[in-house]
Design a protein around this nucleic acid. Structure first.
Lengths: 237, 237
DNA sequence: TTATCAAACCTGTCCTACAAGTTTGTTGAA
DNA sequence: TTCAACAAACTTGTAGGACAGGTTTGATAA
C-alpha cells in the first residue's frame, strides 16, 4: 500500500478518516438525509482499506452523526439522544454518576424548558401536555402508566421549548429515569401524596396552556424539589 | 458458522455484541480502568468474526464508553465530554442547532453550576477560578488569551459543582463556543465594555471564593443575559 | 532478589470473498 | 409516450486469514 496518505495527524487511520468524513459534511454543507460517499470509494480516495473506512463509519453511526443500513449509502443523521442516553447510562452503571445528580441537572434544564414552553408551545403541544398530565391523575392507581405519561409529559415540554439541545438532554435521561422512577413513587406512600404529584403536573400543564411562564416555572421548581426530597427520603444516594 | 448465537434481538450482529459488552460491564460491576475481554476471545465466545467484535468495540470507543489502544486490552473509560462535543458540533454544522440555543442551555446550566460551586468548591478550585478571572482582566488587550481563560473559568466552575454531568455538558460546548466567541467579543466595541465583561468574571469568582451563592448566581445570570444580547446585536441567529 | 529478554498475547490494518439489500437503467408492454 | 418488470451494478454486513508492531508475562540469568 502506498504511503500517499495525507498524514494529517499522528493519530490512527480510523481517526483521520473520521475527520475526513466530518470535514466532508462541513465543506459540502450536508444536512440531515444527505448521502455520503460509499465505503469503497472513500477507501480508494484515501488509500486505506475498506476496513478502516467501515470502522470510521461505525464510529460516527455510534454517535448518531450518520445513519447506516444495509445496501443503502450512509446518510447524515438528525439530532438524536440515542448516543447520549448510552453515555449517561454508562456513567450510572459505572457509578460515576448518581441518580441525585441527574435530578439536579434535570431541575436546572427543565425549569427552563417549562418557561420556554409556556411562551412557544403550539396549540397541539399544549393539548398533548395537558393530556399526559390528565392521564397521570386518572390512572393514579396504575404506576406503569403514570410513569410513561410522566416521562412523555416532560419530553413534550422539552420539545415545546423549541431548543433541540433541551430535547436531547431530557431524552437522554429517560432511560435512567425509568429505572429509578419507582423509588420516588414508592416513597410517596399516601394516596394523597400521589394524587398531589399528579395534580402538580396538571397545574404545570395548565400554566403552559395558559401561557404563564412564571407560574409554570415556579410549579416545576417545586415539583423537582419535592422529587429530589422524595429520593433522598428513600435513601437514594 | 453455527447459529448458536443468542438471538437477543433482530438487530445486527454488531448491535448485539455491543449489548453483550455493556451487559458484561454491568454484570461484573466494572469501573473505569477495568479491562474487558480481548477481541479474539469475545469473538470465539459469541461465535462471530473478529470483524464484528472490532466494530462493536470501535462503536463503544467512539462514545467514549471504553478506551482502546494498540496492544493493550480495552478498558472501561472515565466519563468524558469528547463524544458529546462531536455531537454538538455536528448539530451546529448541519444547522440543527444555533449558537443562541447553545447559550440558552449554557445559561440554564451555568446559573446552577455557579451556585453549587459557591457551596462546594475547594480552596484550590476557588484560587484557580480567581486566577482565570484575573487573567481575563489583565490580558484584556489579548483576545485569544481572554477567550482561553474565559473557557477555563467556566469549566472550572462546572468542575467545582461536583456534578460530572455539568462538567460534561459545559465541556461539550467548549468547541463551538470557541468558534463563536470572537463574535461576542467584537460586538463589545468600547474598551470599557470589554473591561466590564472581565470585571464581571472577577466578581463572580469573588462571590464563589466568598461562598455567596445568591450573588454568584445573580452575576452569572447577568453575564449570560449580556452575552446573549451581544450575540443578537451582532446579528447571530 | 532483581534485571533482562524472549515468547505469548493483543490490537491495527490489509486483503479477499460472498450473501443479501438497494439503486439504476434497460427492456418490453400497454 | 408512459409505466411496470426485471436484470445489472452497486452497496453494506459478515467471515476469515495474514502480518506488523505494541504490550504483558514469565522464565532466565546475574
Amino acid at each position: 500500500m502506498q504511503k500517499t496518505n495525507q498524514d494529517i495527524s499522528g493519530d490512527s487511520l480510523v481517526s483521520n478518516t473520521i475527520g475526513v468524513i466530518t470535514q466532508h459534511i462541513r465543506l459540502n454543507e450536508l444536512g440531515p438525509g444527505d448521502r455520503l460517499p460509499s465505503e469503497t470509494n472513500l477507501a480508494k480516495e484515501l488509500s486505506v482499506s475498506r476496513t478502516v473506512v467501515r470502522e470510521a463509519f461505525k464510529s460516527l453511526a455510534a454517535m448518531r452523526l450518520i445513519n447506516l443500513s444495509a445496501g443503502k449509502r450512509a446518510t447524515v443523521a438528525h439530532l438524536d439522544h440515542g448516543a447520549m442516553s448510552l453515555m449517561i447510562e454508562h456513567g450510572v452503571v459505572t457509578e460515576q454518576i448518581s441518580v441525585q445528580q441527574i435530578y439536579d441537572v434535570r431541575r436546572a434544564i427543565e425549569t427552563r424548558t417549562v418557561t420556554l414552553a409556556s411562551l412557544r408551545r403550539t396549540e397541539a403541544e399544549a393539548q398533548t401536555i395537558l393530556y399526559h398530565a390528565a392521564q397521570m391523575r386518572t390512572q393514579v392507581e396504575n404506576p406503569d402508566l403514570v410513569m410513561e405519561h410522566d416521562l412523555a409529559f416532560h419530553l413534550e415540554i422539552a420539545k415545546a421549548s423549541r431548543n433541540p439541545i433541551f430535547s436531547m438532554i431530557v431524552g437522554a435521561f429517560q432511560g435512567v429515569s425509568r429505572q429509578s422512577w419507582s423509588v420516588g413513587w414508592r416513597s410517596r406512600t399516601e394516596p394523597s401524596q400521589r394524587l398531589a404529584m399528579a395534580q402538580t403536573h396538571v397545574d404545570i400543564a395548565d400554566a403552559i396552556a395558559t401561557g404563564d411562564p412564571q407560574k409554570a416555572n415556579a410549579l416545576m421548581t417545586t415539583h423537582f424539589n419535592d422529587s429530589i426530597k422524595a429520593l433522598l427520603d428513600a435513601g437514594m444516594s
